[in-house]
Amino acid sequence: MNEAPAQLLLQSCASFLRINIKKVVIMVGTTQHSRRQFLRSVSVVAGVELLQIAAPAIAVAATAARKSGSAFQVLDEDDAADFAAIAARIIPTTDTPGATEAGVIHFIDQAFAGAMQGSRAFAVAEIAEANQKLDGRFADLDAMAQDELLHGIEDGEFFGLLRVMTIFGFFAMSKYGGNKDMVAWKLIGFDGHHGPWQYPFGYYDAEVHGGDYNGE
């Protein structure tokens, strides 16, 4: 597949990017936040205003037969590569591990096979449409081109879904497929083995209780 340079990409994936070209230019390389995130209300406190993805009442076990040789339960290899690439832009690999090292794609696959199976057809159709406009596959773009494309769709439902799934997959317990070797928890300083904990917990209560807290 062709490695489309950013300019080419902008021309070829006409419709949905055209509307957003201006925005893409503004967003790239800045720290501007999406308007939606800012407007999101945190007025509910005990109440979690979450981007909750509707899950079917009962998580039906994955019934789709594993394709022989496939590492995935329900995703085909190409779709998996694209979703993995999107996840890798949402939580990129830097000098620390990101979505790739955490194996987020295995969470996504497992979720699309089970609790979030209702969203799979939508996600697959969306990535197919994007790829059609690309005349290639998202996974084959370079990171800058991928970011530009994603900035163009970041307020849409598809990106919202992938963002939430990436975060779920990164941080949820490893049994759900991602967070391999607890890399996500180590990244943020969340000790994965869940207590019990002894005081002091942190720098400031150590001033009161004495003793050493164990850093992050």
Binding site: H33, Q37, V48, L50, I90, T94, I167, W185
Partner: peptide, 25 residues
């Protein structure tokens, strides 16, 4: 962690990408 990432982030930080990751961490 998930609540922190989805609900606990400041408004001046992008909602994805390297800056998002760094801030979260």
């Amino acid at each position: 962690p998930i609540l922190h990432a989805l609900e606990g982030m400041p408004p001046d930080v992008p909602s994805w990408g390297a800056a998002f990751k760094d801030e979260m961490a």
